[in-house]
Design a protein around this nucleic acid. Structure first.
Length: 1039
RNA sequence: GCUCGGAUGGUGGAAUUGGUAGACACGUUGGACUUAAAAUCCAAUGACCAUUGCGGUCGUGCGGGUUCAAGUCCCGCUCCGAGUACCA
C-alpha cells in the first residue's frame, strides 16, 4: 500500500488470528467433504458448491478474482452450519494459450511455468481463508486427468445421435442398422452431404469407405472448417489475437482458410440444450443468452435449380410466405458453388471479391451494416413456382457458417435484402397488400398482414400463407418444412502445444482411436513451441510421435511404415475440453480415481452442482459445452444426471481505477524540450479547460497569445503563467500548447495514494524509465533527479483516474495479498461483499476498506471490553456475561438473523454486511455483553468473516471449531411491534410522520390523522377529495 | 450490427408486492482527547432557496405515459459494459 508503514497497536490482532485458524483448518481437515460411505450414523444431505475453474495465469490473482470465491465460500459455510455435507472443491484449468505464448517467448516448458503459477495461486487463495476441500484438487494438464478427457473424446467418436429417440447411442448400433437396411430410413444426425446407401451398398463398401461414411455420423468427426490463418506466423490465430484485421503479434495479414479439423456435433443436442434450460435455476438473462445463441427458427429449406447447371442452391427461410417476392439469391463468398457457377465474364470480379472477403473477419462482416458490397456471379437460378430466372449474387453479409450459406433474398420483407437490392438496382417486388415498401422493407409478421401478387397465396394472412407455401413447394420437391438452429458444430482442434493430445493415429488418412487401456497418451516433448516451418502444429516438431500398433506405445517418427507404425494426430484439444467435465471429477476422492471419472456411488451421491458461481462471459462457451458433454455422458450411461449446474449466479467484474500521469509532448517542431517532462494533473486539467476556449496557446517572452496573436488574459492563464514559463524556461521563447500536448500515461496504482497523489520516488523505484524524468508539481516547483527528494517544498504531484478493466497492462491491479497484509482476510472478504451486488460490475476503491475494518474492530470490542496488548503476548480478555439478553438486544439479534438469512438465500451479500454493521452499532449502544446474544452473532458472521468468528467462538469458551455449529434460528416473537411511524402524505408528498397503533382500523386512523393540527395546516381549510390509508404502510391525503 | 446487462449524492451503494428516496459505509467539514500525530469518540453532510426558528422548491441517465402514489410499471431514446463461436 502506498506510504503505508504503520504499526498500530490493536486489540484486534487479525494477523495472528488469521494465521492460527488457517493452520487449524488445514491440520484438522475441517472442510474435507465426506463420501456416502464415510457416514456411520445418520448421513448428512449433500450440497455441492463450485466456483468456475480458474486459469492459473502468470499475473497471479487480483482482487477481482476472489469475488465469486468469497460469495460461494459464504454460501458453503452457511450450508455447513445448516447441517449439510458440503463439497466445495477447487482446482486449475491449467492448459491454455498464455502459458504457451510465454513458452514461445522464453523457451520454458509450459508445464514448468504452470506449476509455478499454480503454486502462487494456491498461496494467494490460502491467505483469504476459503473453506476449500483441497484433497480433491484437479488439474486439466495432469495426465491422470486428461486420460479421462481423452476417454470422453473416444466415447464421442464411438457414438451417433438417434434423432427419433433424441439420444446418443453407440456407433455399433448404427452399423447394425446399415447392415440390415442401409441409411435411408434411419433418423440420425449427420453431415448435410451424406449420400444414401442401401444394406447391399454398405456390405460392398471397403473398410475405408465404411469408415468414411461413419465419420458423417460420429459425434466427433473430421471436417473442413474455416480458420484465421496467418501465413507469416505459419499458424492459426484466435479472434483474440487479431487486432484490426492483422495479427496482434507482428501485425501480419490474416486470411480465412479451410482446414481439416475435429468438430463436435453439438448441434445434434440443440433442442435438448434449449428445452433443458426450463428446469435450471439460472438468471433469465443468461437463459435468454443461451436461447438466442442456440437460435431455433422454424421455416422451410428451399431448393433452387441453377439454370444450365446440374447444381442446386439450398437456402433456409423463415418466410416461405414471401416466396413470390424473391428477386435474387445471395451466396456467401466462401460458398462451394461460387467457383462452379460463376460465368467467365464475371470471374475476375468474383475472384477479387472473394479474396477481399477472406481478409475480413466474420465479426467485422456482421458488424458492418453500412457498406453494402456484392458481386453478380452471372448465373441465374430458377424460381420454383414461376420458373422465372433469379440472379445469383455473392455478398459478404452472408456467412458461410450460418445455415446453408445462401440467402433467398426477399427485398420487400427483409431490410438487408432491401438495402442490397436498392444499392445494386435489383427489382423489389411487393408481396404485401396495401403496404408501401419503396423506402424500407416491411418485416411485420403478424397475421393481419395480407399477402398479394402471389398467385395462390393472395389474400392470406402471413401465418396462413406459411404452411400453404411450404405445402406447394413440397409438392413439387422444391422444399420442405425445417427447423434451423443458429448453433453450429464446435471446432475441437487447436494448432497448439499446450493442450490435451488427441488419442488418434492415422491409417490411410483415416482416424483410429488408441485403445482405452493405453491411455493417457502423454504430450510429447518438443524443442520449440512454435508451429513447424511448413505450417504444421507444434506437435509436428516432436520426433517421438508415432503410434506402434503392436507394442501400443509412442515410438520415434522414423519407424512410421504405415503398416504397424502410424503417425499421430498433431492438433491438440481446446481449452473447453478439460473444463466441460471437471465438476464430476471432484466428486471422487484422489485415491479412487484411476478406474473411472468417478465411482457410481460418488456420482449418484453428489449428482450435480447445486450452486455454481462465475462470470457471465462463459454464457455461450463453457456453460453450453459442459451441458452438451453432460447430456452426452448421461445418454451413454456414464453420468446419472443430464445437467451439470442446477443453480448459477453470475458475478460481476471488479474494475480497476487506473492512474495516469501526463507527459508534455513537444509538438509542431516548436518545442525542443525533452520528452521526459511530467506535469501534475491539477494543472493539466485547468489548462485543458482553457484550451477548449482557445484551441491552442502560444507562449512568448512578451506574453501568452491565442492563435490569432491576441493576448490571453484569462484568470487561469494568469494564474498559471509562472508555471507555464517555468515549464518552458528551459530555452524556448515561443511555445505552442495544444490539447494533445499532454499524453496520459498509465502508472501503477500502488504508487498513488487515495488522494490521487503520486509517490514519485516510489514510481522511480518500480519503473526505471522515470529515473531521469522531471516533474512539475502543483506549486510550480520542478522535481527532478538533481533536486533533493527531501527538499521538496510541499508541492504535490497528482494523477487523473479512470475506471477500466483490471489488468496488468493497465497497471491498475490491486493484489489481495497486500490487502490481507494491511487489513486482514476477513476485512477483504467483507469488503468485497460490501462493495455492491454480486452480479454487478463495480470499481475497486481501496480507501473504502477502512470502513469494514473498523467494523471488525468494533465487533471485537463488543466481545472483549478491555483487551490487553497482543504485542505484549496478552491473551484475549473476553468479557461475557451469562445474564439473559435485554429485550432490545434480542430484538436487534433477531432482526439481524432474519435479514442475514434472507440475504444469504437471495445472494444479497452486500446488504448482509450492512446489517451486521447496524447490529454491532446497536449492540454497542446497548452495551450488550450477554452470551445469549453474542454466541448466535458469532455464528451468523462466521461465513463472512470466519477467522474472527472462530477466535470469538473460542473466546466464548468453546473448544470445537465454529464451522459446523448449528445456525441460529429466527424467532418472530422478538420483533413484534405494536405501533408504526406512519408517513402522512399530501398528494403523494410526505409532510410529517405520526406514531400510530397497528391495532387501529382504517376509520380510526383517518379520524386521528384528520384531527391533527398539522393536517389542518396542510389543508388550509379545504376538504380533501380522498384519503387513502394502507394500514401498516402509508396515509395519503388527496386534495 | 446482433444478444444480454447497467445508469440513484463527491464515491460504493440501500430502498419488501408501486407506499417516508439516499439505509450502511467511504470521503469531506467542524469538534473532543493529545505537547503533537495516529487511533478513538461526537456532530454535520443530495442540490438550491429561506433562516432566529418553522419551513419551501427541485431531485433516482433523457423525453413521454399510467396511478391517490413511480427509482420501481408501460412506450420512445441516450450513454456505458459484457459476449459475438480459437482468451479462459
Amino acid at each position: 500500500m502506498p506510504f503505508a508503514n504503520k504499526h498500530f497497536i490493536m486489540a484486534y490482532d487479525f494477523k495472528r488470528i488469521e494465521q492460527d485458524w488457517q493452520k487449524y483448518w488445514a491440520k484438522h481437515q475441517t472442510f474435507k467433504a465426506k463420501q456416502p460411505q464415510d457416514f456411520s450414523g445418520e448421513p448428512k444431505p449433500p450440497f455441492y458448491v463450485l466456483d468456475m475453474f480458474p486459469y492459473p495465469s502468470g499475473a497471479g490473482l487480483h482482487v477481482g478474482h476472489p469475488l465469486g470465491y468469497i460469495a460461494s465460500d459464504i454460501y458453503a459455510r452457511y450450508k455447513r452450519h445448516s447441517g449439510y455435507n458440503v463439497l466445495h472443491p477447487q482446482g486449475y484449468d491449467s492448459f491454455g494459450l498464455p502459458a504457451e505464448q510465454y513458452a514461445i517467448q522464453t523457451g520454458q516448458h509450459p508445464a514448468k511455468t504452470t506449476e509455478a503459477n499454480i503454486k502462487r495461486y494456491r498461496e494467494q487463495l490460502d491467505k483469504i481463508g476459503f473453506s476449500f476441500d483441497w484433497s480433491r484438487e484437479v488439474r486439466t494438464s495432469d495426465p491422470k486427468y486428461y486420460k479421462w478427457t481423452q476417454w470422453i473424446f473416444i466415447q464421442l467418436f464411438e457414438s451417433w445421435y438417434d434423432e427419433a429417440a433424441q439420444k446418443s447411442k453407440p456407433i455399433s448400433d448404427l452399423i447394425q442398422i446399415f447392415e440390415s437396411e442401409g441409411n435411408s430410413e434411419v433418423q440420425a444426425v449427420c453431415d448435410g452431404d451424406t449420400p444414401e446407401f442401401s444394406a447391399e451398398d454398405w456390405k460392398a463398401f471397403s473398410d475405408d469407405e465404411k469408415e468414411q461414411h461413419l465419420l458423417n455420423y460420429r459425434l466427433t468427426y473430421l471436417a473442413e472448417t474455416e480458420v484465421n490463418w496467418c501465413p507469416a506466423l505459419g499458424t492459426v490465430l484466435a479472434n483474440d489475437e487479431i487486432v484490426n484485421g492483422v495479427s496482434e503479434r507482428g501485425g501480419h495479414t490474416v486470411v480465412r482458410k479451410k482446414m481439416k479439423q475435429w468438430s463436435m456435433r453439438i448441434s445434434a443436442f440443440a433442442e435438448r440444450l434449449l428445452s433443458g434450460l426450463d428446469d435450471l435455476d439460472w438468471s433469465e438473462s443468461l437463459k435468454e443468452t443461451q436461447k438466442n445463441w442456440i437460435g431455433k427458427s422454424v421455416g422451410a429449406q428451399l431448393k433452387f435449380k441453377i439454370q444450365n447447371s446440374k447444381f442446386l442452391i439450398e437456402a433456409f427461410t423463415t418466410r416461405p410466405d414471401t416466396i413470390f417476392g424473391v428477386s435474387f439469391i445471395t451466396l456467401a463468398p466462401e460458398h462451394d458453388l461460387v467457383s462452379q457457377i460463376t460465368t467467365p465474364e464475371q470471374k475476375e470480379a468474383v475472384d477479387t471479391y472473394v479474396k477481399a472477403a477472406a481478409r475480413r473477419s466474420e465479426r467485422e462482416r456482421m458488424a458492418d451494416v453500412k457498406s453494402i458490397t456484392g458481386v453478380f456471379t452471372g448465373a441465374f437460378a430458377e424460381h420454383p413456382l414461376t420458373q422465372k430466372p433469379i440472379p445469383i449474387w455473392i455478398g459478404d453479409y452472408v456467412l458461410a457458417s450460418y445455415g446453408t450459406g445462401a440467402v433467398m433474398a426477399v427485398p420487400c420483407g427483409d431490410q438487408r435484402d432491401h438495402d442490397f437490392a436498392k444499392h445494386f438496382g435489383i427489382p423489389i417486388p411487393n408481396v404485401f397488400q396495401g403496404i408501401d415498401i419503396s423506402e424500407e422493407a416491411y418485416t411485420d409478421k403478424t397475421n393481419t398482414t395480407k399477402i398479394a401478387n402471389s398467385d395462390f397465396l393472395d389474400g392470406l394472412g402471413v401465418l396462413e400463407a406459411i404452411p400453404k407455401a411450404i405445402e406447394a413447394l413440397a409438392d413439387i420437391g422444391a422444399g420442405d418444412k425445417k427447423i434451423n438452429y443458429r448453433l453450429r458444430d464446435a471446432v475441437f482442434s487447436r494448432q497448439r502445444y499446450w493442450g490435451e493430445p488427441f488419442p488418434v493415429y492415422y491409417v490411410n488418412d483415416l482416424p483410429k482411436m488408441i485403445a482405452e487401456k493405453h491411455l493417457p497418451l502423454k504430450l510429447p516433448e518438443v524443442e520449440k513451441y512454435l508451429p513447424t516451418e511448413d505450417g504444421a502444429p507444434p506437435l509436428g516438431r516432436a520426433t517421438e510421435w508415432a503410434w506402434d500398433t503392436e507394442t501400443n506405445q509412442v515410438v520415434s517418427n522414423d519407424k512410421i511404415d504405415h503398416k504397424s507404425v502410424f503417425p499421430l494426430e498433431l492438433n491438440t484439444m481446446p481449452g473447453w475440453a478439460g473444463s466441460s467435465w471437471y465438476l464430476f471429477r471432484y466428486m471422487e476422492e484422489q485415491n479412487n480415481r484411476d478406474q473411472h471419472i468417478a465411482s457410481d456411488e460418488a456420482l449418484n451421491y453428489w449428482k450435480n452442482v447445486d450452486l455454481y458461481i462465475g462470470g457471465s462471459e462463459h454464457a455461450t462457451g463453457h456453460l453450453l459445452y459442459s451441458r452438451f458433454w453432460t447430456k452426452f455422458l448421461n445418454d451413454r450411461g456414464v453420468l446419472p444426471v443430464d445437467e451439470p449446474f442446477k443453480k448459477l449466479i453470475n458475478q460481476g467484474m471488479i474494475l480497476g481505477e487506473s492512474a495516469f500521469v501526463y507527459r508534455y509532448k513537444a509538438s509542431g517542431g516548436e518545442g525542443r524540450i525533452g520528452e521526459n517532462i511530467y506535469i501534475t494533473y491539477d494543472f493539466v486539467k485547468s489548462i485543458k479547460e482553457e484550451l477548449s476556449k482557445f484551441e491552442n496557446i502560444f507562449i512568448r517572452e512578451n506574453g501568452i497569445f491565442d492563435k490569432n496573436n491576441n493576448i490571453i488574459d484569462s484568470e487561469i492563464i494568469i494564474k498559471y503563467t509562472p508555471i507555464l514559463k517555468k515549464i518552458f524556461s528551459l530555452g524556448q521563447s515561443n511555445m505552442l500548447i495544444m490539447e494533445r500536448s499532454f499524453d496520459p500515461i498509465h502508472v501503477d496504482v500502488s504508487v498513488v495514494n487515495t488522494s490521487n497523489q503520486l509517490d514519485i520516488e516510489g514510481l522511480k523505484k518500480i519503473k526505471p524509465e522515470f529515473s531521469e524524468a522531471k516533474f512539475i508539481l502543483s506549486n510550480g516547483e520542478l522535481y527532478d533527479a538533481n533536486s533533493s527528494p527531501l527538499g521538496r517544498s510541499g508541492g504535490d504531484f497528482t494523477v487523473s483516474r479512470e475506471v477500466e478493466k483490471m489488468s496488468k497492462s493497465k497497471f491498475n491491479v490491486v493484489n489481495p495479498d497486500d490487502v490481507c497484509e494491511e487489513y486482514g482476510a476477513d476485512s477483504l472478504r467483507l469488503y468485497e461483499m460490501f462493495l455492491g451486488p454480486i452480479e454487478q460490475a463495480k470499481p475497486w476503491n481501496t480507501a473504502g476498506l477502512s470502513g469494514v475494518h473498523n467494523f471488525l474492530k468494533k465487533l471485537w470490542k463488543l466481545y472483549s471490553q478491555a483487551s490487553p496488548d497482543p504485542s505484549q503476548g496478552g491473551e484475549s480478555d473476553f468479557q461475557i456475561s451469562d445474564e439473559p439478553g435485554s429485550k432490545e438486544s434480542l430484538k436487534t439479534l433477531h432482526k439481524t438473523i432474519k435479514k442475514v438469512t434472507q440475504d444469504i438465500e437471495d445472494f444479497s451479500f452486500n446488504t448482509s454486511v450492512s446489517t451486521f454493521m447496524i447490529c454491532v452499532n446497536e449492540l454497542t449502544q446497548q452495551k450488550c455483553n450477554s452470551r445469549e446474544i453474542l454466541e448466535p452473532l458469532a455464528i451468523l458472521i462466521s461465513p463472512y468473516a470466519p477467522h474472527i468468528a472462530e477466535e470469538l467462538w473460542e473466546g466464548l469458551g468453546h473448544s470445537e471449531g465454529i464451522s459446523e455449529v448449528a445456525y441460529p434460528k429466527f424467532e418472530e416473537k422478538y420483533l413484534k411491534e405494536d405501533s408504526k411511524t406512519y408517513p402522512i402524505s399530501f398528494n403523494g408528498k410526505m409532510r410529517f410522520t405520526m406514531d400510530l397503533s397497528l391495532d387501529l382500523s382504517k376509520d380510526e386512523i383517518e379520524e386521528i390523522v384528520m384531527a391533527d393540527e398539522r393536517t389542518q395546516k396542510q389543508l388550509e381549510g379545504k376538504t380533501p377529495k380522498k384519503v387513502i390509508i394502507v394500514p401498516g404502510k402509508i396515509v395519503n391525503i388527496v386534495g
